[in-house]
């Protein structure tokens, strides 16, 4: 029988869907019967999804200009090197 401790230990594999089917069925049974573990599973999933869903913001213009300038310089020096 799966305990809360077992469930927490297996939670990572469960979330990544890498538990074997037999164990997964037992974990599913436990979640249905244990409100604590259900809440932990639900809030952990939400935690992952909220980070995943956050879009990367555009770079500040100043930073982008600095980056492009450095790259242009690098490309310029590399092509000059080839020419030599």
């Amino acid at each position: 029988m799966v305990t809360c401790k077992d469930f927490l230990r297996e939670l990572g594999e469960y979330l990544d869907e890498s538990t074997d089917p037999e164990l997964r069925a037992e974990l599913d049974r436990h979640i249905n019967e244990c409100p604590n573990c259900w809440v932990v599973l639900d809030t952990t999933k939400k935690t992952i999804n909220i980070y995943k869903g956050l879009e990367a913001q555009p770079l500040p213009e100043r930073l982008r200009a600095r980056l492009m300038e450095a790259v242009a310089k690098k490309i310029g020096s590399a092509s000059n090197g080839h020419d030599c």
Partner: peptide, 19 residues
């Protein structure tokens, strides 16, 4: 050595690398 192609790769991934 196509600078334009490299710039396109930068534009595609700069946000994620910075984040």
């Amino acid at each position: 050595g196509d600078a334009e192609a490299f710039s396109a790769l930068i534009s595609k991934y700069e946000r994620r690398v910075y984040r």
